[in-house]
Amino acid sequence: MSAVPVPGIGSKPAVGAREEARHAFVAAARDRLGAALVGYHDSRDGAVCLITPASGYRAAAEFIRSQGIDRFDFLTCVDWPAHFTLTLQAYSFETKLVTRLSIRIPRDDFAVPTITDLWFLADWEEREVFDLFGLNFAGHPDLKRILNPETWVGHPLRKDYADHVDIKRPEYF
């Protein structure tokens, strides 16, 4: 079998290409997101982390997608005492630049716009976050529980999910 060459994929990046891509990405983010970009930093595993307010989530995701960051890594949520953090990570096949987007969602109001139209894989990941944390994704085509049975009560990965000590049995027991 022979490979059909795909432009930009499969060639080793030149030394420093990732650095360049990072600079270009950050400059574009400042430019495009403006005041919606609260801050950014390099995490200790080498990803560029953008931080935006919850209202800028959709715009920031669209911006990341428009930069050719085509490979979806994960979407997840962390339950901090005061708020939820929704984290989205994706990287680029071409430049190998890893980007992470974090937003803070207050505990009492958690509806975030969906990004299923940007990345195909976000569909199931959003359903998983909904199942385990109870975050609502406005505009998701089919938002229902994915891992737990649909009759399950509560959102298990929240820190205040106390049921795990004494599990309430479903009806069939």
Binding site: A3, V4, V6, I9, G10, K12, D70, R71, F72, F93, K96, W119, F120, L121
Partner: peptide
């Protein structure tokens, strides 16, 4: 394959030479 985010051998079977062992 790129759109739906294929992984591993499924991705490589379409001709994309992408393997984290070499690429990252």
């Amino acid at each position: 394959a790129m759109r739906i985010g294929a992984q591993g051998p499924v991705l490589r079977s379409t001709g994309i030479r992408w393997d984290l062992r070499r690429d990252m």
